[in-house]
Write a protein that binds this DNA or RNA. Structure first.
Lengths: 368, 368
DNA sequence: CACATCGATTAATGCGTATTAGTAATGCGC
DNA sequence: GCGCATTACTAATACGCATTAATCGATGTG
């Protein structure tokens, strides 16, 4: 913005200062004694399109090599009407100092897949309200500079996202989301994953199990419950409403007494939802310990997700891992498809089942 | 490259499908009832150049806003202007699966500083040799899409980097590097940092100290040695060649006997270079332990850097930390300066001195 | 009242490449 | 030997934006 930056005068002289300027196709063409278009054709190396004689091809390649010709990416992208850029927009800093909450695992997948497909990544930071970019609602429209954009985090304003979507700008949200109508997203397949956990427990011989969940309506929660209930159904087990224990504060409500009550009722396995805080899982572990029970022996436990970092050294919970890296890759795949004008690809990514050490056969029942 | 991708027929119809296409200046112009040139002028917001009436300005800005107009970076570049994009190029994946080797701490600073200055970041992935992008010399040239580019890692090919540099394309390398002539870089100030460590030891009363270093010629190594020797000089201490112990395999050569020899000669402090492997530091710790010495009491130790991750729980070594985040920020500052046509900013970033627990006063000398 | 002045805007052009319509040259069949 | 393909290229143009020369109306001047 500051300095207009001298440009070569509109006039003739295409290569004024001899050596210094980068060679253009025009100069390669001159050296090879052909037209610029021919150079472009040779270097494009298409199979279709106009034929080129082997002789000409060699002349051009030789000329290009000797001049050290390298295509100008800006011109290339301008002409191609696409710039091979995918945006990544996060509403917090993409690289938070607090590594715990970082999108790192996603980015690993995003980068890999993007590279694979020949895309470069543009990082937009929603939190960059400080600098030049006016932080108004139109801040989001910066992303239009890319061919499409990936959104991370749930803080994306519905309004603006909807605008992009209805404008036909390719957008993919990382994490399931129903909000702006027609928004594309990729997410972990919690339904199948929870189902699989139930399968595992059922295969071990458990006939009654209870899901401990917190009291919120996020899709991630309801999906897990769905999968859990479907799993029970598939296994031919009872799936009534009492198989789901829902509490806004599991640490308070999930008492050892309640646990014993369930056990007395024949419940042998407990499945906890995973959340940010891991409250359900913590409460479950606590209750089991307080009731003086031994985990794999007296009762089997499972966690519908990965344990919180501070419990990482405990016994590995039966459950599943969210395939963050693969989610990132899947998001890029879908985005690439949308950019190419194709149908959206599969939004669900399978979770990785983790046998873990917190489940085993149910305790033998005496009266049987 | 793959799919020729239908382009709008050369004919008239500029905006065929209504909503979908990205808005261009031409459409903003139409909506505002002015010419494309006027739109460009308004959006450029120059102080010089043709005057624009306030009324027109507002009309254009309003139209641009309502369409969500964003300039095409490629076109901007091609027209010899600025993008507000800074490139980040790494030759390994920017987000490796192995988080240990990640550039993460740098990126934190890079992102923050870039946002501060109103730049967006483009991640160019050099390691994408597997996929579509042929890894030819032009791989590097993609970065020309941005206004300037930051390079991470030491694997950047000199040849191609040099090309960018001589072409006047703004480039900053993260980490000191002398190789392509004229390449700008930012790096940690190892000289001062090592100097400071020596100051600290001297202030504690140490009169003789030895630097343990590995046998390589990386600038990072020689800088540390320089700082060490300068530190000795400043403190008025002996700085002969025997104050530097250089070994290709410290684990083998740094024996307890040798250590005792030094102690007998009056050496009371040992300073180890930091490297990837931390070999010098490990050998030093081992030798001290094997010699049955107590670290802060019988001999003081210092490490010119941060300890390797697996030694993180040991006593905190006296030494310094490499300010990676600030290095990232400094790199962006310099790059921004270069892009603006200004002088390069200060390349050296101070390290943070760490008093640590491995140094103390030298043992009292009886015969004194 | 013809003419230079100034301000606001536009027409025209270039940036470097990809693409497509078109041209010249050659080969082929009848 | 004249259409008609086919081959091998080239000319022309568009891509989206910045820039500059030119235009036009309004104002002022001698």
């Amino acid at each position: 913005m500051e300095e207009p930056r001298k440009r070569a005068r509109p006039g003739r002289s295409p290569a004024p200062a001899g050596r210094t300027a980068r060679p253009r196709q025009a100069e390669v063409a001159r050296l090879a004694g052909v037209s610029q278009a021919t150079v472009s054709l040779v270097l494009a190396d298409k199979r279709e399109g106009p034929a080129i004689s082997e002789e000409t091809r060699q002349k051009v390649l030789e000329a290009a090599r000797s001049l050290g010709y390298v295509p100008d990416p800006a011109a290339r992208r301008l002409a191609a009407a696409r710039n091979n850029l995918l945006g990544v927009f996060s509403f917090t800093a993409t690289f938070p100092t607090d590594v715990q909450h970082s999108y790192y695992p996603f980015l690993v997948g995003v980068e890999r897949e993007a590279a694979e497909r020949g895309y470069d990544l543009v990082l937009f930071t929603g939190s960059s309200t400080g600098g030049a970019g006016a932080a108004g609602p139109e801040a989001l429209s910066r992303v239009r500079l890319a061919d499409g954009c990936l959104f991370l985090g749930r803080h994306a304003p519905v309004q603006e996202l909807g605008r992009l979507v209805t404008d036909g700008f390719p957008v993919v949200h990382l994490g399931r989301r129903d909000d702006p109508e027609g928004l594309h997203w990729v997410g972990a397949d919690y339904v199948s994953a929870a189902h699989e956990v139930v399968d595992h427990l059922a295969a071990l011989g458990h006939r009654r199990m209870v899901l401990i969940r917190e009291d919120d309506e996020a899709p991630a929660s309801t999906d897990r419950e769905h999968g859990f209930l479907k799993g029970l159904e598939t296994a031919g087990l009872h799936g009534g409403p009492e198989t789901v224990f829902r509490s806004a504060d599991p640490a308070r409500d999930l008492t050892p007494e309640r646990l014993r009550g369930w056990l007395a009722d024949g419940v042998t396995a407990f499945v906890a939802e995973e959340t940010d805080t891991g409250a359900a899982w913590r409460a479950l572990l606590r209750a089991v310990a307080d009731a003086g029970l031994d985990c794999p022996r007296d009762a089997s436990l499972a966690l519908l997700g990965s344990p919180p970092a501070d419990l990482a050294d405990g016994p590995e919970p039966t459950g599943f891992d969210i395939p963050r890296t693969r989610l990132g890759a899947a998001a890029v795949r879908m985005l690439a498809a949308l950019v190419a004008g194709e149908e959206a690809t599969e939004p669900l990514v399978a979770c990785a089942f983790r046998p873990g050490a917190t489940s085993g056969p149910p305790p033998a029942v005496h009266g049987h």
